[in-house]
Computed example of a mutant assay.
Amino acid sequence: MKNNLLLVAITFATTLFAQNGNTINDAILIDGTLTTINLLNYDSATDSGLTPSCGSSEDIFYSHTVGTGENKMTIGMASGGLALLTSIDYQILMAPSGDLGQLQEVSCDSYAVIALVGGSFQLVIDNVDETNVYYLRVFKNTGIGINLTSLLGGTSITMFSEFDATLSTENQEFEDTKIVTKEHELEILGNKSFTSSKIYALTGQEVLKEDNTEVIDAVDISQLNTGIYVLVLENENTSITHKFIKK
């Protein structure tokens, strides 16, 4: 029995150590809102040296994996007010399907914690892919006069993903709409909602524009010179782009 208890204790301690957040591989998992930040993790934090980086102090990592069927990611922090003004530096990274070899920076910023008021940030990312892993990297605040215990005691971290049906609708519109380039026109197949079209030269100059009350099934390009152009189809809520060659 004692051996079993010892094994459980070792396993539990190992699990805690494996998620101390000191490196990106040890990132603390979050699915929702973490309201109690472990001060010991910050006290023992070291500079991970991970690149790309936008801070020079010790750092702690948190992570969330986008679940099956989910397409929207929310990441944020909120801190209560202190007796003085400070700020918290953070970086958001994304690993496609958890592959750290393809790690990408999403955002690098800071938010102010105003005296007696507090501060926060929230980033919402639409059309995320399933199994992508998002990391929140928080840099340890070492400013003079900062009471780390008070700061972290009043700070929460939010990381969660969800399904947003409106995003799914826009994606479906994009997937259903096919554009075929012909000699004198662009044929728009499967269009259910796009009523406006614009064509731009690669210089950014708008060369054609058409607004309709009904959905577009073709765009006349007979007056265009030979070259490469960009078509933009729009409705009230969204737009799609398509690059084509006029021969």
Rank of each mutant, 00 (worst) to 15 (best):
L6D: 15
F12E: 14
F12G: 00
A13N: 10
F17W: 12
I24H: 05
I30L: 11
T36W: 00
L40G: 08
S44K: 07
S48Q: 06
S48T: 13
G49Q: 09
P52A: 12
C54A: 07
G55E: 06
S57K: 08
H64E: 06
T65M: 08
V66F: 03
T68S: 13
M73W: 03
T74S: 14
G80S: 11
L85H: 12
L85S: 07
S87L: 07
I88Q: 03
D89C: 02
Y90G: 01
Y90W: 07
I92D: 03
M94E: 14
A95E: 03
G98H: 04
D99V: 04
Q102H: 11
D109M: 03
Y111A: 07
A112T: 14
A115T: 10
G119I: 00
V124H: 07
D126M: 11
N127T: 13
E130N: 10
L136S: 00
R137D: 13
K140H: 02
T142S: 08
I144E: 09
G145T: 06
L152F: 07
L152A: 01
G153A: 09
G154W: 00
T155L: 07
T155W: 01
S156D: 09
I157L: 15
F163Q: 11
N171L: 13
E173C: 10
F174N: 11
D176W: 02
I179N: 00
H184I: 09
H184M: 12
E187Q: 08
L189R: 03
G190D: 03
S193V: 09
S196C: 03
I199S: 02
I199K: 03
T203L: 08
G204P: 02
V207G: 00
V207S: 00
L208W: 04
T213L: 13
E214D: 15
D217F: 06
A218D: 09
I221W: 03
S222T: 05
S222E: 14
Q223D: 11
L224M: 00
L224G: 04
N225L: 15
T226H: 12
T226A: 15
L231Q: 02
N235T: 04
N235L: 04
N237A: 11
T238I: 05
T238K: 09
I240V: 13
H242D: 10
K246H: 11
K247P: 13
